[in-house]
Amino acid sequence: MQTDNDEFILSCPAPRGRHTQIQMAHGGGGTLMRQLIETVFLPAFDNPALNQRHDAAVLDAGGTRLAFTTDSYVVQPLFFPGGDIGSLAVHGTVNDLAMAGARPLYLSAGFILEEGLEMDVLQRIAQSMQEAAKRANVQFVTGDTKVVNRGKGDGMFINTAGIGVVELGVEIGPLQIQVGDAIVINGDLGRHGIAIMATREGLEFETTIESDSAPIADLVMDMLTEGIEIHCMRDLTRGGLASAANEIADTAGKCIHLEESAIPVREDVRGACEILGFDPLYVANEGRGSALCVSFAGTPSAVRRASSAAWPLNRRRR
């Protein structure tokens, strides 16, 4: 029997624009990237740990719960106000581990260097990585270097992988969120993304907006030892808070409600977003606790404890 629905499908042309080649948006952290993961990577590598789709995989190794993650860094320019590709490569990866409730321990570093890169630049970046690692209490224990022909790389790309240990008996991930959970973010959104964008495009504002990239594992550990029941966390990188919330809601099959007026965005970042036509909720934050999204058992006292005790920035409430 033909229903109205069948008729509709028959009369409707096959959608165009299904991509046969990789587009920039496939790496943008949004819908296309999600499609890529769902149609290429998940079917290819299908396994229970991967299918959790968290920032880091949590694995059982002889009774110890290890968290394992990897991330590649291709940011341009290599140096930007408030940071550089090296510090970012540390913060991003340790924060991915922290998002699984793990204490970050060891990192690897893979360098893809472009022929002609200034040695001085490489040295400054390595130095910055070491300082960031020290701050985050992790060590680089293995690495790799490749050089590609001039024109085949943007100065340098860095990949870091990290291992951490999940010490407390916590299950953290999108599938753990529950109806009634609250969301805590520990600071204002969008500074990192706008800082990079402004430098890249040569945009000048009254004040320089600096990236607030930083490690946040200690904050997470504090929250966990406080006994706050965290169900899910996200480092709000590409795609910002809105994309992370969408992805978590999608994975968990639940609806997440955000109150725009309760989300802190600094005045200069809001201004830059107005000028550039961006929504601050979609702007990237990288490796920065201020941009962490936590959902946990939403009793009023737990909310208060999480948003004041364990998260220093929240003492400066509006």
Binding site: V179, D181, A182, I183, V184, I185, H257, I263, S295
Partner: peptide
């Protein structure tokens, strides 16, 4: 449209 608020945001 959100059916019903499931989570709320606290800062």
């Amino acid at each position: 449209r959100p059916v019903s608020p499931v989570t709320e945001l606290v800062t």
